[in-house]
């Protein structure tokens, strides 16, 4: 049985529908990268899964159970953790406190500390900068701590919303490297990415979302190799292998999302 299954999901804000009947299946212990132009509804898919938004129609099945109507807290209890696109660390708390907050729902300080210690072994940044205020870290470093914090609950499913958005090329490469290193750790990952090439290069599966529906769902390598996909969704042709450190192609129809990301970028 697949871990997560979205069937004919219709969802949106206010009067409009952003998702117009999404079908998407995530197999266990795979990385799926969701790509598509701005406004296609990529982030909305994540919100629908994590319970921040309830679908109007359709079902969201997690391990066979319909979770479409659950509140965020209940979804979290099932082992689904979302890392939002915006900065999500608590800026005035130390890196270490932030890690512990990741296991807030456990209500077991000792266990939280134990998990944070074991993650600190895996994430050098957490180990080296544990006493520093999270707000003093660079954007890329903060994202890495956010990723580490998301693992505190040892979730079954990780949802990442544009983890590389607004980061400098080097930081972006580092984020993808860490995300790629999560493969084989027992986690299932759904990754939404604007940097489609980089996202697909670390993924097993790729799905193209356009205008509220899933246009294509294929192994990531075949999406990368597909000239039609490359032309429409990946921008100019480029070496599809490895992590791209160049600036990603911007879609001409760049909408508010891109500008919003820029504005959010704080002074470092």
């Amino acid at each position: 049985m697949s871990l997560l299954q979205l069937e004919n999901v219709v969802a949106g804000y206010g009067f409009g529908d952003v998702l117009k009947g999404i079908d998407l299946t995530l197999e266990r212990e795979t990385i799926t990268c969701l790509i598509g132009p701005n406004g296609a509804g990529k982030s909305t898919v994540l919100k629908t899964i994590s319970g921040l938004l309830h679908p109007r129609h359709g079902s969201v099945r997690f391990e066979g159970e319909d979770i479409a109507r659950r509140r965020p807290r209940a979804v979290l209890d099932l082992g689904i953790v979302q890392v939002p696109q915006e900065r999500s660390l608590f800026p005035l708390m130390s890196v270490w406190e932030n890690m512990l907050m990741g296991a807030y729902i456990l209500n077991d300080h000792r266990e939280a500390r134990r998990r944070a210690e074991s993650l600190a072994e895996r994430f050098q940044l957490v180990r080296d900068r544990r006493t520093e205020r999270a707000g003093s870290l660079s954007g890329g470093e903060q994202k890495l701590v956010e990723i580490a914090r998301a693992l505190m609950l040892d979730p079954k499913l990780l949802l990442f919303d544009e983890p590389s958005a607004g980061l400098a090329p080097q930081a972006r490469a580092q984020v993808f490297e860490v995300l790629g290193s999560l493969r084989g750790g027992g986690w299932t990952i759904l990754l939404v990415e604007q940097n489609a090439r980089s996202g697909l290069s670390i993924a097993d599966c790729g799905a193209v979302l356009d205008a509220g529906v899933v246009k294509l769902e294929k192994p990531a390598t075949s999406l990368l190799a597909d000239p039609e996909v490359a032309r429409l969704y990946l921008g100019a042709r480029r070496d599809p292998v490895g992590v791209s450190t160049n600036r990603p192609p911007e879609r001409p129809a760049a909408s508010t999302r891109v500008t919003a990301t820029r504005k959010e970028k704080p002074v470092e």
Binding site: P72, P84, S88, M93
Partner: peptide
């Protein structure tokens, strides 16, 4: 410090 993130971590 970050209400959205607090909610995502399960804080009521």
């Amino acid at each position: 410090q970050n209400p959205v993130s607090a909610r995502l971590l399960g804080i009521e």
